[in-house]
Design a protein around this nucleic acid. Sequence first.
RNA 1: GGGAGAGUCGCAUAGUGGCAAUUGCAACAGACUGUAAAUCUGUCCUCUUCGGAGUUCGGUGGUUCGAGUCCACCCUCUCCCA
Length: 297
Amino acid sequence: MSKKKLIVLIGPTAVGKTNLSIELANFLNTEIVSADSRQFYKELNIGVATPSSLELSMAKHNLIGHISIHQKYNIADFEQDALRELERIFCQNDYAILTGGSGLYVNALCYGVDNMPDVDIKIREELNQTFSTQGILPLQEELKQKDPEYWEIVDKQNHIRLIRALEICRQTGKTFTSFRSGEKKKRDFEIIKLGLERSRENLLERIYKRVDIMIEEGLIEEAKSVCPFRNLQALQTVGYKELFEYFDGKVDLPTAIENIKINTRQYAKRQMTWFKKDKNTTWLCAENKIDWKCLDL
RNA sequence: GGGAGAGUCGCAUAGUGGCAAUUGCAACAGACUGUAAAUCUGUCCUCUUCGGAGUUCGGUGGUUCGAGUCCACCCUCUCCCA
């Protein structure tokens, strides 16, 4: 029996993943699993370019709007959820499609993440408190002392990384390193990675146009409706945080919109930096019609 | 016509005698195993064998060992009085 295949469709924001994944899903007669860390949230739609109801009707999508911004969700949760969906899809199909722009989430499904203990939320709150009142130094000192091995390799200026490692140390009394195997998990399906790309000019044009359309479609209203929850991690999101500044009167609307465009293109850039690293990716130019039959899937 | 002020590396901004020149943004390159649309790093006048070298601060002269900084004239812009 031939192995099941997961087609992973990656690429920067606005490259056209939604359309092409629908095309591919219809071509392969299968379903799509999303790996988009913002489309998970049912409260976020316009600003995160969630597929429209029409698009959703053209192919079965999974893990879109399946949680709330008020829920805690992380890559381990995603790994479980996505694996469960794949298992279900593979019962009836030889193919499944994973599409999304969140590189870490894609990797979580493709290669797995190490098992880490749950951490009491209070620990992170304490660490955040330390950081906001005393800066990064105490975090650096503590990690140097508690996990010298990780200290050697960690991004020492990045408080997020330091806090993550420290919360594990504090929770368990063990080193963060001791939980990091770095091993890739074996999956019982084959993974075929397709990267979508466009020229810079073409991608930027699409980004700018899409932002304008989002505004027309009511992004401001959507942002207003979630503004009371703006401190949630889920709302540290391009398209919303810039509008919150506008609501605060810090910038005018045209500036806020311009900032969304700038931040979106910077995001796209970071996505490409991430995706380019994976040498197992076959890159396709999304500017031309893609003939799926010609791909060796 | 009279008066006041300003012109600095894409943009903004610091600098009042030792400066290739502050900071922010943008740009470019990159990192990233539970916050990832988050967070962080490097580069950013030109050339470089990465030791340096060469040209810069509206223009032209001048003072000075040394000028973005002081002086003169000119150009451009902003504001106030006519």
